[in-house]
Write a protein that binds this DNA or RNA. Structure first.
Length: 527
RNA sequence: GGGCCGCUAGCUCAAUUGGCAGAGCAACAGACUCUUAAUCUGUGGGUUGUAGGUUCGAUUCCUACGCGGCUCACCA
């Protein structure tokens, strides 16, 4: 029998012995007053005398994360997932069977306690326990208390263990929730209506990417998981909803990397009568507001948590100095407005170190790519070549917030052309931390031009670009009813959270990132 | 898909030139009525990711495979 199996067996025996003695080992409920976080929020600064005077008796549930057994006194940490409160258990204070239960507790057990708040001689806020009931027995051992769980594969596969062992992981997902709330509040306050459009589409449009394919049996039709909600949201503009947004999952059947997960969360919003410049303003305002929100929340979390006092001090100082200068890996990103704006061509010339002559025509672009050992995409015209050069020379340098504007029409089949230069569109992308975070443009609303663009995409597909956009006849029909001039934007939420929570991989901001399934063999210790 | 790296006890990590696979925590038995990485005494725990190969002998060298990480490619 392996070590793990032995430990599981021991825990099962303890549980089964209790059950045989008539103790319900998975009781249905425990009426409680407060959890550890609430207790710290309310009495975190109360003195021993205050507590004695107030005589606070409480019922508190939680998970046992540490046990310090002193013989006839036991100290234990009772954790609520965010923070702990210490249990101070004396044999004299308990009924005999309760003391027996306490003596048999294992790390990870979930219990309900009752007692009085006090401070120990060392000053720790503690619950002087008068009763303990087992709420759930943990059958598997917890990871090591000091080093936590480091193995990345286990952290992603068994996120529940990661969350139990590594308290910082919890904070990342609290930031994520805060970002989601902040976005909804921001857009709701400005009169945007949150809507939901199909995730299963018979034609995967609105972006350029390979889709996942599935099949509906009753209708006997193939369907695709959406790669973007764009074309449906714009149909709502036609339908007279002037400001709409959707925040939900997109699915792209592409490679996986530190910035790509096959399913990812995207905010898209459409704003009738707004132009490109209004979108830039709104984007700055939104993201700055979210960053301020996250910084503020970080401060209060740290004030609450005694344990966190020694958290990264350099970090704290930055935030105090300027909450809009945020750490990201080795970088500091300055979110103070206004953010830099460069056209694609300007960026290639100034940041990419490309000679102006290289932008002259397709041949010179191809030459510039060849010099850099970069491939030209199949069937590429001037626009695609320019973007290939941009990605090769500029993209990963865009650490500080930068709006890249004036994208080629060739790579922007749904965007409106610039009035003075039809080869380029009123489109921008926002880069932060070297990542593309947002993509926005003035929406093409001329149905005939849109039909032409779709035809050009079909031609590109024939020329070897198997990700070119499909022709969506119903969308053109919708445009024929008249779509108001509008600005639209998509923001990648996962990447934004990476930045605001200072996480290096998209897997660190997605609770259950996609991994290859585990080998079919049984996990050790399963019975 | 390519390149590089990793996989050793439940967890975190060692193991010299190819020579008996170890430690801390956790577990188990015991001591201890203010500890907080509690302390002290003792004990058990391994198909070294899988399958082959080389060798008297493989955690170590070789091959294939699996899973993961980074990276390149891919990907607005």
């Amino acid at each position: 029998m392996s070590e793990l199996e032995q430990q599981i067996l021991n825990r099962r025996r303890k549980r089964d012995a209790l059950a045989e003695a008539g103790v319900p080992v998975y009781p249905n409920r425990f009426l409680y007053d407060l959890e550890a976080s609430d207790i710290h929020a309310r009495w975190g600064t109360a003195s021993a005398d205050d507590l004695a005077a107030e005589d606070v008796t409480l019922r508190v549930p939680g998970r046992i994360t540490a046990i310090r057994n002193q013989g006839k006194v036991v100290f234990a940490d009772l954790h609520d997932g965010r923070t702990k409160v210490q249990l101070f258990v004396r044999k004299n204070d308990l009924a005999e069977d309760v003391w027996a239960l306490v003596s048999d507790l294992d790390l990870g057990d979930i219990v309900g306690t009752a007692g009085t708040l006090m401070r120990t001689r060392m000053g720790e806020l503690s619950l002087k326990v008068t009763d303990v009931t087992l709420l759930t027995k943990a059958l598997r051992p917890m990871p090591e208390k000091w080093s936590g769980l480091k193995d990345v594969e286990t952290r992603y596969r068994q996120r529940y263990v990661d969350l139990l062992a590594n308290p910082d992981v919890r904070r990342v997902f609290e930031v994520r929730a805060r970002v989601m709330r902040g976005i909804r509040r921001f857009l709701d306050d400005r009169g945007f209506l949150e809507v939901e459009t199909p995730m299963m589409q018979s034609l995967a449009g609105g972006a350029v990417a390979r889709p996942f394919k599935t099949h509906h049996n009753a209708l006997d039709i193939d369907l695709y998981l959406r790669i973007a909600p764009e074309l449906y949201l714009k149909r709502l503009l036609v339908g007279g909803m002037p400001r709409v947004y959707e925040i939900n999952r997109n699915f792209r059947n592409e490679g996986i990397s530190t910035r790509h997960n096959p399913e990812f969360t995207m905010l898209e919003f459409y704003w009738a009568y707004a132009d490109h410049d209004a979108l830039i303003e709104l984007t700055e305002e939104l993201i700055v507001g979210l960053a301020e929100d996250v910084a503020k929340a970080g401060d209060t979390t740290q004030a609450e948590e005694v344990d966190k006092a020694e958290a990264d001090e350099a970090d704290d100082q930055d935030r105090q100095a300027d909450p809009l200068v945020i750490p990201y890996g080795d970088h500091r990103i300055d979110l103070n407005r206004p953010w830099r704006r460069l056209t694609v061509k300007e960026a290639v010339l100034t940041l990419g170190g490309v000679e102006e002559a290289a932008l002259a025509d397709e041949a010179s672009l191809r030459a510039a790519l060849a010099v850099r050992h970069a491939e030209a995409p199949p069937g590429a015209g001037y626009g695609k070549l320019l973007m290939a050069l941009f990605e090769e020379t500029v993209e990963d340098q865009l650490i500080q917030p930068t709006f890249i504007t004036e994208f080629p029409t060739e790579v922007s089949p749904l965007a409106k052309q610039k009035p003075d230069d039809p080869d380029f569109t009123e489109r921008f992308e926002l880069y932060l931390g070297g990542m593309e975070v947002a993509n926005a443009f003035s929406e093409l609303n001329d149905p005939d031009t849109q039909a032409d663009r779709f035809r050009q995409q079909l031609a590109a597909r024939d020329a070897g670009d198997d990700e070119a956009h499909r022709f969506d006849h119903d969308y053109v029909r919708a445009l024929e009813f008249g779509m108001p001039p509008a600005g639209g934007e998509g923001i990648g939420i996962d990447r934004l959270v990476m930045l605001l929570a200072d996480q290096p991989s998209i897997r660190d901001v997605i609770l259950f990132p996609l991994l290859r399934p585990e080998a079919t063999g049984e996990d050790n210790g399963a019975t």
